[in-house]
Design a protein around this nucleic acid. Structure first.
Lengths: 110, 110
DNA sequence: TATTTATATTGCAATATTACGATATAAAAA
DNA sequence: TTTTTATATCGTAATATTGCAATATAAATA
């Protein structure tokens, strides 16, 4: 039905899914990578960096912001976006637990 | 248009997006967590563990498999699924670069 | 061989996502 | 104050995702 049965899963599972889903688009990966590359907030030059129209970029920024992966501050007539450490911290913990498991697991069958 | 402009992004950006998107659903998070919890392949008991019908679970498993996050082997008349280290390795590298950046960055503006 | 058991596929309805033109908003600059 | 610049929102079309009943497949067992 296109509607995820959110209520049947734990809050942690839903939170992680929201974060991963927000990262799950090449434009949003590109935005994150650009933020890291320029090593500061991005104020304005993002539309020129991406192969997408301005409203589309704005929409992707909104989704990253809603997921808690970036945060934006007004800076004059522009808005500056930075990575939000909180969001990435949550995912980090999840992937660390997976990596710990994968490093220690013995290959039982697969 | 609902269609991602895949061709305008790098292969790495698209690959990462596919992986993150596959993780971006609570049922698929639950599957991954269950695989870690039981510390072996899952052969059959997954439908009982999830609040979803069997075809839906099968579909989620397929998506995780297509993304390269799990792998399945026939085991008699059942199929056993395990985590696929390769897929998680790719994401791990991405998140490590983000974490390295976040740990070293000075808060310029946001 | 017939039945059971486990999983996959098909088909479809409901909802979500993606993209962008048009337009709105709001601060800066002329 | 008017214009420019930067960003957000609205509306809408195209496509994707989610979920499941019905059905198919395929190996194990009776």
């Amino acid at each position: 039905m296109g509607i995820t049965k959110t209520e049947h899963f734990t809050e942690q599972q839903n939170d992680l899914a929201i974060l991963a889903k927000a990262i799950g688009h090449p434009a949003r990966i590109a935005i994150i990578q650009h933020l890291i590359k320029v090593n500061s907030c991005i104020c304005g030059d993002l539309v020129n960096e991406l192969p997408l129209a301005q409203p589309t970029v704005s929409q992707h920024l909104k989704e990253l912001k809603n997921a808690g992966l970036i945060k934006g501050n007004f800076e004059g007539n522009a808005i500056c976006y930075c990575l939000n450490e909180e969001g990435f911290e949550k995912i980090k913990v999840f992937f660390e637990s997976i990596n710990t498991y994968l490093e220690n697991k013995k290959d039982h069958c697969c």
